[in-house]
Design a protein around this nucleic acid. Structure first.
Lengths: 240, 240
DNA sequence: ACCTGAACACCGTTCAAGT
DNA sequence: ACCTGAACACCGTTCAAGT
């Protein structure tokens, strides 16, 4: 069974019900994941290695397999751990759009705290307990706001996919430092002008895009569109 | 220099101007990339290995390094090769939105022809010759349609990022076969109903979403929003 | 001058040998 | 019963030895 798949999570939940064997050493799944997240933050997903992880925890690398099935499982668990770190700030309001915006920005902030982990959010469906808790409350919000179930599901998936993708592009592609931006500008303005007249002319604009701006543009576009669809689906809704 | 970076492509373009040394063996960069793409299509990006690639080409794996700097370079070149395979179908019209839709659907189709390569499109900026050619013509289309340069750049990036992300989610996450969908439905409807009442209730809807539907929803949302922004930026535009 | 086998420094995972 | 060192089967990359 593939780590992260529905069948895998199901089996894992069943195993959790069985009594845990005590561990003699100080090694814990929590400690392993802490160290793994540090490793990813510092050196990226490629830097997350069972052997380097063991070195950081001062144990033989084979010992990790007592607590974890393998490398892929560590990544899957890291993803759900970060999903569990999402903290919704601000008060509960009766405006569903404002609450959705806040929730999605919290989601985005949690992802950007561990930028090098973002590719892992795209590798498979998110089916861990924290992912499910988020799905549950988000869908509840949308359904309670009067959205037909099918549209609520489409809205949830579209919006969360957008948040993840936006963070992934931002953290793995964007030129962030001033030096990187200067290199990029030089690259575009140095292209053969006969072949790429537009790119040469737009060299400045091509490096002036702000990731937050792009996120907000897409977010508002999707929310506007979904609101229109929601109104069309449930036109006769009286305000309370 | 990191393969795929601006500096790397720049240096590569300079090297191409220098006279090429003849190769005694039948090995070509083209043949290498053909085999590499086959390998990715069959076994995914993890299956693309310098050693397996060499085996497929009947040569020692060290010989590949005569034609290619390393593994990462192969992936970068594959991405630009797929970008070069985009074929725009249909006639040239004077309706910029219709042309944009056609171009973006062609982009999507090209990506979905090699679904297992899609994660590589998110790993860095796309700066190869075919990527630049697409950027050039897309930005030309938008600017010619009357978009202010800064907005044209934002529109281009937002739309292409959306196409890539959508394909990445579709090819690496979605349950595509009937069996997979059935497993997912069982997973959601089998969850503890006290904890996840909404997910259990929506188990059917959660597995009824179609990837093409989700793509069209997002595409129309973004195009609508960008059209509004474009009209606001250039209100006094007379039809010819 | 060109090509590449052998070597080096890694990696994930397993399992028999240790405690 | 639990833990883990050693072993196995890989991997990317380099370079000296071959032609």
């Amino acid at each position: 069974v593939e780590p992260g798949s529905a069948a895998w999570w199901q089996q894992r939940a069943a195993d959790a019900d069985r009594p845990r064997r005590p561990r003699a050493d100080g090694l814990t799944l929590d400690r392993i994941l802490d160290a793994a997240l540090e490793l990813v933050d510092e050196d990226g997903l490629d830097g997350l290695t069972m052997r380097r992880l063991a070195a950081r925890l001062d144990c033989g690398h084979a010992s990790l397999y007592r607590h974890v099935a393998g490398h892929d499982e560590v990544v899957v668990l890291l993803v759900d751990r970060v999903l569990g770190s999402i903290r919704f700030d601000g008060p509960v309001t009766s405006d569903p759009r404002a609450m959705a915006e806040r929730a999605l920005r919290s989601y985005r902030a949690a992802l950007l705290e561990h930028p090098k982990l973002t590719p892992a959010f795209l590798a498979g469906q998110l089916l861990g307990p924290n992912a499910l808790a988020g799905r549950e409350s988000a869908l509840r919000l949308l359904v309670d706001a009067g959205m037909p179930p099918a549209l609520a599901v489409r809205a949830y998936l579209t919006l969360t996919h957008f948040v993840i993708a936006s963070a992934a592009f931002e953290s793995s592609g964007a030129a962030r430092t001033a030096g990187e931006r200067a290199t990029m500008r030089r690259y575009f303005s140095g292209l053969p002008a006969r072949e790429y007249p537009t790119l040469v002319g737009l060299a400045d604009e091509l490096n002036a895009v702000d990731a937050d701006d792009e996120f907000e543009l897409g977010l508002q576009a999707l929310l506007d569109h979904l609101e229109v669809l929601a109104r069309a689906a449930a036109p006769a809704r009286t305000p309370r």
